[in-house]
């Protein structure tokens, strides 16, 4: 069997983290860590070297795009998928320009999330 892909979830809302974790663990991903803000995310990335990061765009303190840049500084091949809410196109575009692989929209459709993450890992 193929090795489970290791994912780091970054989101300030516990509810959102829970939802993503549920979706991922049901679909053969391994959630290796959950960060609640940018600083934690960067530290955990260094430590865990996950295959993929789901990164919330709006968080208190360091915002998603800044976190993305920091992670890509550490690892230029980092695979990051942004989590965005309605009306955040400008931020999403900014993130894609800065190397985000893809993005998923809240509200999350489990199937779309899984598809997007699988493709991002290819």
């Amino acid at each position: 069997m193929e090795q489970k892909k290791r994912v780091l979830i970054v989101d300030d809302a516990a509810f959102m983290r829970m939802m993503i974790r549920d979706i991922l663990s049901k679909n053969n991903f391994e959630v290796v860590g959950e960060a609640t803000n940018g600083d934690e995310a960067v530290a955990m990335y260094k430590e865990l070297k996950p295959d993929l990061v789901t990164l919330d765009i709006t968080m208190p303190g360091m915002d998603g795009v800044t976190v993305l840049k920091k992670i890509r500084q550490i690892d230029s091949s980092a695979r990051v998928v942004m989590c965005s809410a309605m009306g955040q196109q400008a931020m999403v575009v900014e993130a894609i320009k800065n190397g985000a692989r893809d993005f998923i929209n809240k509200p999350f459709h489990p199937q779309k999330v899984v598809e997007t993450l699988r493709r991002a890992l290819q």
């Binding site: 965005s84 309605m86 955040q88 196109q89 999403v92 575009v93 894609i96 320009k97 692989r101 893809d102 993005f103 929209n105 493709r119």
Partner: peptide, 14 residues
């Protein structure tokens, strides 16, 4: 599909 222009950008990248 929400944020289509952003989606288009991702597709172009791919």
């Amino acid at each position: 599909c929400l944020l289509r222009p952003a989606r288009a950008l991702v597709v172009l990248n791919q």
